[in-house]
Nucleic acid binder design. Sequence first.
DNA 1: CCGTATCCCTTCTGATACTG
DNA 2: CAGTATCAGAAGGGATACGG
Lengths: 125, 125
Amino acid sequence: MSATHLHVPVPVPADNDCPVREVLDIVGNKWSVMIVVLLGRRSYRFNELHRSIEGISQRMLTRTLRLLVRDGLVARTAYATVPPRVDYELTDLGRTLLEPLTALSGWADTHRGDIRAARQRHDSA
Amino acid sequence: MSATHLHVPVPVPADNDCPVREVLDIVGNKWSVMIVVLLGRRSYRFNELHRSIEGISQRMLTRTLRLLVRDGLVARTAYATVPPRVDYELTDLGRTLLEPLTALSGWADTHRGDIRAARQRHDSA
DNA sequence: CCGTATCCCTTCTGATACTG
DNA sequence: CAGTATCAGAAGGGATACGG
């Protein structure tokens, strides 16, 4: 620890140049995490994901997968068979994301009660 | 490393009942993380935050702070002085969030290059 | 089977002006 | 100093129908 002022030299993030924001832009949308978590177990075909994720529309599944592929987190493999078959799986990069995601999930599990309580306290006041 | 194959025990999330989503709804918006990180260092007054976070509007600062207070992550202390003075600081709960957030930030730092590369590969193809 | 194309609605965010 | 109010644009997301 520093002697006089114990101050972390981390600069103020400048909006665009903030690494955390970059992850959150990837993972912050409604379905990304769910998809990544599922693909963390095994590879899935398109309609398999569609059935496994309750409430997602075909449109959003396509869109979200495209983003994840673009960011190099998910690999898409299309087979030119009839009927067509497309497999999605995590890349090595995608798999590395599981750990911090699990940390966040753990935090949520541990503290969701506190959060609900805080909300109720706040909303009743 | 102790784990042989870091396996994620997270069950299939059911949209509303997904703990990760709950955190991401808190932390996924544009300014929350930046505020939490700043308050992780020390307490701030309103305009101090306003000056420290480049690009945020008064409106969004207020709104985001309100959300964080509601969720019990940030404490607001108003002094009835003239001129008025309001201090914001992390609660104990808020401080616990710093760790998983740092994990995510670390991931971003480590892999932002890979992501940029993947994007360029994808966008040129 | 694996997507696209449209349309529409809601939420989020920003700019600006004003107040206790 | 620490906010509110109002308005408007952008982005996220969903429903439905159609295509290779």
